[in-house]
């Protein structure tokens, strides 16, 4: 795809010299909402880190548009919560690439951080310690941190992991709103297809154990053959009240509730 923000060209991803997956081609264009789905330990995070340049490919190329502004939201379990950071301070960290080493945050930077917290609906938590926030509030704070640098590409690693269904829906609604209203490109990793099936426009299925890497539009990927490759069993897709529901089928053909 020409004009892509980031592109993998025949890339092999992995650690050391051992590739987890090879021959990967992927292009993420402006305004895309791509969800990378697969089982835990299947190579999704490695793929995301390679796309973002946090990890070098074992082989092949990763091409990022020059000057691309990336906002990265790591798995919140990887963020230490025992240190005395307030939610406002965590958000302000997003301004560091703009500030450089010498300039201290000014009022305008703090105002940007406040606006970012407000965009994700947690402005009132600015003075609260990050470690005292709920999982959903921490996730929103980390998204605010990523947004405060005005990114073109927002990359999230398992943002709904460990959330209850209501919080998960709330966060996915927020991401869709940010993508539509903020003209953001979103790449999101999730081990739950059900969580992203109604939000993403494109899906990438990744599983190193099955040597699976498949990318396509939502309609292409929610077909039985693609889903069968991901789950290793028959899968039914139903539409109820305008939402797509994905049901893996048990060996006797019964639906397994997501």
């Amino acid at each position: 795809m020409s004009g892509a923000l980031v592109r993998l060209e025949g890339a092999a991803i992995g650690y050391g010299r051992r590739p987890l997956l090879q021959g990967l081609d992927l292009a993420v264009g402006p305004g895309e909402f791509l969800a990378v789905v697969g089982p835990n330990g299947g190579g999704k995070t490695t793929l995301l880190r390679t796309l973002l340049g946090a990890h070098a490919p074992v082989a092949g190329r990763v091409v990022r548009r020059e000057g691309l502004r990336v906002g990265y939201v790591p798995q919140r379990e990887h963020v230490d919560t025992i240190w005395p950071f307030t939610a406002g301070e965590v958000t302000l960290m997003g301004r560091v690439p703009v500030l450089g080493p010498w300039r201290r945050p000014r009022r305008a930077d703090r105002e940007e951080a406040r606006r970012a917290l407000s965009r994700v609906g947690v402005e009132h938590l600015a003075e609260k310690r990050f470690g005292e926030l709920s999982g959903g509030q921490r996730q929103r704070t980390l998204i605010a941190r990523a947004l405060v640098a005005d990114p073109e590409l927002l990359a999230l690693d398992e943002p709904t992991s460990g959330m209850d269904p209501a919080a998960e829906l709330g966060l996915m609604d927020l991401l869709r709103e940010l993508q539509r209203n903020g003209a953001l490109t979103i790449v999101m990793v999730s081990h739950r297809l059900e969580a992203v099936a109604n939000y993403a426009r494109a899906l990438a299925f990744v599983d190193k154990d099955r040597r699976l890497f498949r990318v396509g539009s939502l309609d292409e990927m929610l077909r039985p053959d693609a889903l069968g490759a991901l789950y290793g069993r028959a899968v039914a897709v139903r539409e109820e009240a305008g939402r797509r529901l994905v049901y893996p089928l048990s060996s006797n053909g019964e639906e397994v509730l997501p």
């Binding site: 880190r49 946090a54 080493p101």
Partner: peptide, 22 residues
């Protein structure tokens, strides 16, 4: 004092730091 913010980001998440150009 000059590297404080970069050090903090690296502590919070090395991947955030790398994707921020640190």
């Amino acid at each position: 004092l000059t590297q404080r913010n970069r050090l903090v980001i690296t502590l919070v998440s090395a991947d955030i730091a790398r994707t921020s150009g640190i």
